[in-house]
Design a protein around this nucleic acid. Structure first.
Lengths: 337, 337
DNA sequence: TACTGGCACTCCATACTTCCGAGTGCCAAG
DNA sequence: CTTGGCACTCGGAAGTATGGAGTGCCAGTA
């Protein structure tokens, strides 16, 4: 259906359009790429490509620009991920080493990715579900209130203030803390719910309501809150691209945690780069953008995802290379700490 | 120099320009505000105001718009802070109650403020220097690495991974932890450096290097890192206003922590609202914006600042009201938890 | 002295027109 | 299947009115 030359034409159109941001015509094509044929031939090919929905013209008698479908074909079959240059790799390394806690790792990563791709970068915090409990700390902060601090083996620290309603003595808190630690230390997060179910029975009756409160918050923290945390950076890079109303929509979408989460999509295999183009995006305001994302984690374990958001008119091979590289390095950093 | 009517004219110009975003002429002025004089008289007044630098015309034969100096006079002498409506107050309350940790409080606050003012909100995390140490936790996370967790009386939790270089036994860690806690619990952060100076001498020689590493990180955490943390929200609100190149500059400035810090300015008395207009801003990219900021804290103690950034053409009374109100509520929330 | 109406003038926006050229589709010939 | 030729389309740039909001100034009035 599409012979080799037509594919070459599509590839050339995508590449030219990405770099010039102007509809590309048949003449310009034969000039810049040495396809050994005349413009008229290219025009025939383009007519076919248009009929099949891979390219379109903004108005009659203008050049062609790729459609979402065209980009999709380009990404799937016509391009290969571009490895980073030596300099870029070095930049990643120097930028990411020296991070001193998880917040810092994530923060640096998102800024790095934004800078590298000159687009908006999005990074999800590593999931807790695959982590192990390293330590649980319970600290009274006021009467009727204790602070629960949860430390994971990946160095992540979670905190919640808990209303116990009943006053708790120092000893009760200490007791509860000891109980929790012996009960939970080393446990995978997923196994925690099962392990604590009988815990209230192990404490004296007057401590029981407080223990129940602590437990309910603990479980809540584990399952609910944390898949959600996502940060982004590089919004300024949006300005250079396209503005108009789109632009406001995109910014609004970016500030919605929920949207941001969906943006990165379902977890695929670690460090496989996935691309979502234009209309393929779930969110309304992002219909004119593309998302390049990859999972990252330690070993085979995908802990979370990170990615880049930009205009559909984007340098896919380069962006995919950057995303893949950063995802790998972050994995290494996490494994090392 | 400027009689009452001229001041009234300036006020009217500011108000009209803010609400319509169009240069305001003499005729429109007498129509909308009932100053009891003719347009010609107003023109004379405007000529004087222009000569003194309070207003200017974008081009000959257009209406006048306020200059930075004009806004300054307006804010200082011609307007009063507008209290929030009942509904808005209720909104603040419902929005801020139910926050479960410091991150959450700050996150909600910044979103609330952005929504309330329809501008970009900026919130600085409460300073640590005025806090007290509630608890110190030391957890080994890998050989040669321990995690230091610092819990404050305001419920803030700080964490850092420390390279100890030497391996530490469980007992050593426990010993160090106990030592730190007895030494530091209840201490004001400012007093910590003095209190720990002789601590390395209290441990056995083989633990000493590790203890030193822990201490140096501890001190670093206390003094350096934390004044810095600032977040913002509502960038989408920038889009509606002015774009052009300015816009990119502003976004870039917002993503720089350092700039963001300077933005809020020096700490004045708690809940006194300060305004910085246009050129008064320290940062290059923000010369066409104004910042309305206030300190917040518990009681007389100013813990940090928060504020709003918008175009110089801004509803100052309303924005100042919102900032002041939010600052107060946040103080209450912090005091309560 | 302070205000007012009148008047000539300025100049920005807007709309309308013209015009160029890049790009197209189609066709007949190689 | 490819190619050169050709008539056609149409968006964007550039030029040209035109209307109206707004100004500054001045002479007249209270």
């Amino acid at each position: 259906m599409l012979d080799d030359r037509k594919l070459a034409v599509l590839r050339a159109i995508v590449e030219d359009y990405v770099s010039t941001n102007e509809p590309v015509g048949s003449k310009a094509l034969v000039d810049r790429h040495n396809l050994g044929v005349s413009p008229a031939t290219i025009r025939n090919d383009m007519a076919v490509l248009e009929e099949q929905g891979y390219i379109q013209q903004p108005h009659t008698s203008a050049g062609r620009i790729p459609t979402d479908k065209g980009y999709r074909l380009f990404v799937d079959r016509l391009s290969t991920i571009k490895p980073l240059s030596k300099a870029e790799k070095r930049a990643i390394e120097t930028f990411l080493t020296g991070a001193y806690d998880l917040d810092d790792v994530v923060g640096r990563t998102v800024r790095l990715l934004a800078q590298l791709t000159r687009q908006v970068a999005v990074v999800q915090y590593p999931s807790l579900t695959r982590s192990y409990v390293r330590h649980v700390e319970l600290v009274p902060v006021a009467t009727g209130r204790v602070l629960l601090v949860l430390i994971t083996d990946t160095g992540r620290v979670e905190q919640r203030v808990i209303e116990t309603f009943h006053e708790l003595s120092e000893e009760s808190v200490a007791h509860l803390r000891a109980l929790l630690n012996t009960c939970l230390s080393g446990l995978a997060f997923g196994d925690v719910p099962g392990a604590v179910s009988d815990l209230p029975e192990k404490v004296s009756p007057e401590e029981r309501p407080a223990a129940a409160a602590v437990l309910s918050v603990l479980l809540e923290t584990l399952v609910e809150k944390h898949e959600e945390k996502v940060v982004f950076a590089g919004a300024a890079n949006l300005a250079s691209v396209d503005f108009s109303r789109t632009f406001r929509d995109v910014l609004e979408a970016l500030e919605e945690q929920v949207v941001l989460m969906r943006l990165l999509g379902e977890s695929a295999d670690s460090s496989t780069v996935t691309v979502r183009i234009g209309m393929e995006n779930p969110d309304e305001g992002l219909r004119s953008t593309s998302v390049v994302a990859a999972g990252y984690g330690v070993g085979d374990l995908t802990l979370a995802r990170l990615g880049v958001l930009g205009p559909t008119r984007m340098d896919y091979p380069g962006t995919m290379g950057a995303v893949r590289a950063v995802a790998r390095y972050v994995g290494q950093i996490l494994a090392g700490s």
